[in-house]
Nucleic acid binder design. Structure first.
Length: 280
DNA sequence: AACGATCCCTGTTGGC
DNA sequence: TGCCAACAGGGATCGT
């Protein structure tokens, strides 16, 4: 699934291709993809004629800054994919949005399950949108271990669920949360407030290295349906995962079989030996 | 405020 | 081989 490393990979790939380009044509092909606006044409009308001045990312939200103080916001959801292609390339199935630039590549948004969206926000709309509720970015603004510990204190919620809460920390999804917990040796069902100081320190210390490794490999491409790089290649982090999707396979540290449990309707993969369960 | 449950959506998978 | 229910999951929303 596209999480922080995947979105960051996309951002880095499209930055040199799109910054400075002007949008000449834009089309929402599936109304749900523009659901943050009253009408699909709001997205199209606001985009056409605008120039891309920069790129940004907050958590899993990709932001293309535009002139006229507008922000082009794209969320990949769970099956979203951004392609940069020559305008004459045939359209892929499940193309939900496209934009053509002046003498540059076309951006295509392909999203089979339509959990993703495309929006163009004014700065006022940005500050009242869901982006304003995001917690610190797990890559660019990771709080200190002390700060994280303070915010976990007294919380009964499973630490895995808290890591998925984008208001707590923005950018981790199901894959990277499991990877962080495995590398930190912490069981996903542990109440967040039950972690010792040194456990919070371990957790904190694994966040950026896991994200860094994911970004280095171009993210995780799970299957044909989901995330790919903008040039169509698959990300290479799948074979480096230690926990996610590895049920029954040996832990890379201790060779114990990885287990799968469900917490809050989310799969959690963990090593029962390296990640000790909570006392109950 | 904190937390859990439910819904959205559709390609894939597994059971019969 | 064909059919269909179950499954996957980020974020919004609602109930307790």
């Amino acid at each position: 699934m596209p999480e922080l490393p995947e979105v960051e990979t996309v951002r880095r790939a499209i930055h040199p291709e799109l910054v400075g380009r002007r949008v000449e044509r834009a089309r929402i092909c599936h109304a749900r993809t523009a659901r943050r606006h009253a009408r699909s044409t709001d997205v199209e009308d606001r985009l056409v004629g605008r120039r891309v001045t920069g790129t940004d990312r907050i958590g899993k939200f990709l932001i293309l800054q535009l002139d006229s103080d507008l922000a082009w916001v794209i969320h990949l959801g769970m099956s979203g994919r951004i392609r940069l292609v020559p305008p004459e390339d045939p359209q892929e199935v499940h193309t939900r949005f496209w934009a053509e630039t002046d003498s540059g590549p076309s951006l295509r948004f392909i999203d089979a399950r339509t959990f993703g969206f495309v929006a163009v926000f004014t700065s006022e709309e940005m500050s009242s949108s869901s982006l304003a509720k995001l917690g610190p970015d797990a890559w660019n603004e990771l709080p200190s271990a002390h700060d994280l510990g303070m915010r976990m204190e007294g919380r009964s919620i499973a630490v895995k669920s808290l890591l998925l809460d984008q208001r707590f920390l923005a950018g981790l999804g199901n894959i990277y949360a499991d990877e962080v917990l495995h590398r930190a040796g912490i069981h996903p069902a542990r109440p967040a407030g039950s972690l010792s100081g040194s456990e919070v320190g371990m957790l904190h210390s694994r966040v950026r290295p896991v994200l860094r490794d994911g970004i280095r490999r171009g993210g995780t491409s799970l299957d044909d349906l989901a995330y790919l790089l903008p040039d169509g290649r698959a990300g290479g982090f799948l074979e480096y995962l230690q926990a996610y999707g590895r049920e029954g396979r040996p832990c890379r540290t201790c060779h114990t079989a990885i287990r799968r449990i469900v917490i809050r309707a989310r799969s959690c993969f963990f090593c029962p030996r390296c990640q000790r369960p909570p006392f109950t």
